[in-house]
Structures are given as C-alpha cells and as structure tokens.
Write a protein that binds this DNA or RNA. Structure first.
Lengths: 237, 237
DNA sequence: CCAATAGTGTCTATCAGACATTATCTA
DNA sequence: TAGATAATGTCTGATAGACACTATTGG
C-alpha cells in the first residue's frame, strides 16, 4: 500500500483516546502583588472549583497549540498577552477522571490594566494573589502547575528581564526591581539591578517621568526581543 | 447531573481526534563525536525515512508520558537512560499528514557503551553523527526537534554538567571538557573548566586512573543529583 | 631523553553585593 | 526645610579567561 492509500484509509478514532488540553498560567503584577488568573469551572469534572484558563483544541479553528492558548486567553481577558512560553506538558492516567489526559501548559505575562477591564465583575474569572492561593479549592493538578510556573519565572528573574512583561508598557526601574524581588523572595541591591540593565541596553528611556512622592522616576519601555536576552551571571537567590 | 453520572456517560471518542505521540532525542558521545539515535520508519507516513524513536501512548501500559518514552527507548536500546528531560511539545495541523498532531519531545542522554551492544547491526536503529545529519532524509519535523534539543543541551553545557550523562559512568575531566567544547562550539580554558567543577563538589574521584599516552587522568563519577546543579555564572559562548 | 597528555599557579577582567552619598520631587 | 523616593560613587569579593608552568606517564 502506498502512502496515499494509507492516508485515505486512516481512521484516527481507531486509536485509544487520549484527552489533549492546553492550560495557561497568566501572571500579572498589581499593587505590589503577583497575581494569577483563575477561572471557575462550570462543567464536570471538578465543577465549581477554580482552575487555569484553558481547554480542548478545536481542530477546526486552531492551527497550532499556541492558537488554542491564545484563543482561550482572549475569551477570558479580551487581549493576547505579549509574553507566552511553553512551560511543561503533563500526561498520565490519573490527573483527569475522564481518562488518560495530556495537558500542554504555558506561562503568560500581561500588564494588569490592559486585560479585561471588567474582569473582577465577571464571576467566572478573577485575579488571585499568591498569598490567597492556599485558601482556594483548585481543580485537577493545577496547583502544582502554578507552582512550577512561578518557580520557572523566579529563575528567569535571576538571569533575564522577562518579568517586565507583567508590567504596563511603560514602567520604572524601581517597579521592575519590585517584581523581581517578589519573585526571588528577597530584596535586591538597587545599584546591581540598575547596572546590569543600563549596561545591557535592554530598555529604552521614553524621556517621560512618573511623579509620585519623591524624586520622579524615569519611564522605560522594553526594546524588541529584550525578553530573549539572558545575563551571563545570575543574581543571588 | 452529578459528577459520577457525568463520568459514566462520558465518551472520549466524541471529541475531535488529535494524535498524541512522544519522541526522544537520545544523545551520546563517542570518539570525539556527538551522536543522536535515529530509527528507520517501517510504516506510513514517511515510511523509509529516518526519525526519532517514539510513538503513540499505550494507555493500557503507560501510566505517564515518561513511561511511554522510556518504553520506546528500551525497545530500541535495551536500557533506560540516566538522564531524561522534557524538551518541548509541538502541536499543529500540518506536521503529520494523518491530521492534527501533538508530540511531546524529550532530551535523553546515555553512555555509548551501555546501550544496545548490537545497535549498529540492527538495521532499523543507528547512531548518527551531527555532521552526517544534513545528508539524511528526516521524517516529519524531527530535524528541527533535534536542532532544538542540541541548542538546549548547549545552553546546559554553559551552566551545568548535564552533558556528563552522555559519558560512561566513570570518566575523566578532559573527556567531559571535550563534550562541552563540542556542544558550545569553541575550545574552553582547561583551568576555568576544572576550577568550577573542583569548587562545586559535583564529581567523586574514584581513585582510579585512565592510562593512555601521557600523564594518567583521574576517573570521576557523578555525585547523585549533580545533574540538577547550576552554576551562577555561565561560561562564554 | 622526548612527546604527549593531565593538572596547577597566578594575573587580569568583569560584574554582583554592600552601602554611603547625592539628586529631585511634594508638602 | 523635611521627608520621600530615585539615582550614583566607590569599594570589595567571587569567579571566568589567559597563559605559562609543572607533573606523570610511555617509548
């Protein structure tokens, strides 16, 4: 049999069924807090619990896995995040009561004000602070996926400025330092933090300033592709 | 409807079928060369081309995705590699002619002599050197998966000693330096390389020596969990 | 002895940490 | 002017690169 005949006769449903989903851990930063987007499940299984935004691939609409993630995030937040990276894929026979299940999880970052102006009025999606996570009933294995995403983002805070994507388009260096400090879990030296960013030319000074309280802070924005840059030397953990 | 009734009525085959496979990029190091294991495809599609070892999940036998990978590698090499880490998951509607396809790919490392004593006599699996890859007809998108795996492993060579898992259990520091040099693509300073390994206490001196040519070289083995260690400062690329 | 390979001594350069100092705003 | 916050000056310490040197084997 040649390939053409093989493909004509091929029946995908003849194979053992495996559930395939995607999930996104969408972070943002607001009022000195790292927040993650959770969605209230309206269907079985784990109905009523909170879980990560995500769901099944729609082969008719999605060309790629990233399309699926972006589609799901767009439905919940109204926008497409500027940072999206694959986190980890989990597949086993116990994570979903419906059967053998595979989920490709992603880490996404977005500015707080850009997403879902009315997100806190929609009852099925909300931002949850990390302190609050322990008190919430989380669906499936999503709690461990969130932990993994946060751990990975912490590592990135040590050798990149990826966390900047959780800030508004224009932001100050003290703001960026704050989110790094929260991710790493300890205060950083202002001088060290500024030095590596100054020297690496990753940010553009917009010329604007933010005025609040003391000396005004310069407003910067990300240069294109700055999210891919990695420092050769890490900050201390 | 409660969850129990929902699950009883649930039919996984009712959902749009997505093909789910795993693939492994298994590296080893032999005679100054980085080698990757390829398998000749005996079925459509891409029959006759060379591809990565891998295949469909067997829900009856595999509890996890890692089980699937290890089962496939065991079939080809006779052993389970000491290093296995998820690389990347690709899912789209064009990579497999049979339909929407998702593959979870893994990077694996193994000592050359431990695996498949007769691997080069088996016609459907062989070690391929990186120089030779360009001349081979590769199935699906596996060429780009191999590139990604190599790129990732290069990065690890800059900040870890993970490449040591591609060497025999006992190895010399010059051997380890060689595989790092090949991955990074430039010679390294002997002194720098030794210093970081000495100071980090990642290897155990077995007390044995390897005699060949000049001054004998001390034989080391990996300490447990040394594969997870990361240096705070990278080598130069 | 020489050739070959393993391993060390030591200087320099780079860059993060520490922390004091200066700058620029509002009240 | 005082208080607050942003930004800089400058010293120290850790560690990678460079490269010359010494050590230990076989022939």
């Amino acid at each position: 049999m040649n390939e053409k005949a093989f493909l004509a006769a091929y029946d995908p449903k003849a194979f053992p069924a495996v559930l395939v989903t995607v999930d996104a851990v969408l972070f943002t930063f607001h009022q000195e807090q790292l927040l993650v987007l959770l969605v209230k499940r309206s269907n079985h299984p784990d109905m009523g619990k909170w879980g990560l935004p995500g769901g099944f691939i729609d082969p008719a609409r999605d060309k790629t896995l990233e399309d699926t993630v972006n589609r799901k995030l767009l439905e919940k937040t109204g926008v497409t995040p500027p940072y999206l990276e694959q986190l980890h894929t989990i597949g086993n026979d116990s994570r979903d009561k419906r059967g053998w299940s595979v989920t490709a999880s992603y880490t996404a970052l977005i500015a707080h004000q850009k997403c879902a102006p009315g997100i806190d009025s929609v009852s099925d999606a909300r931002w949850v602070g990390f302190d609050e996570l322990d008190t919430i009933d989380i669906a499936f294995d999503h709690r461990s996926v969130i932990s993994l995403a946060r751990e990975r983002l912490k590592q990135k805070a040590l050798y990149s400025i990826v966390p900047a994507y959780a800030l508004p388009e224009k932001f100050t260096l003290p703001e960026l330092q704050r989110i790094h400090e929260i991710l790493i879990g300890k205060p950083l030296q202002k001088k060290s933090f500024r030095r590596r960013i100054d020297q690496s030319d990753l940010l553009i000074d917009t010329g604007l300033k933010r005025y609040e309280g003391g000396r005004p802070a310069a407003l910067y924005k990300m240069r294109a592709r700055s999210g891919r840059f990695t420092f050769v030397r890490n900050l201390e953990e």
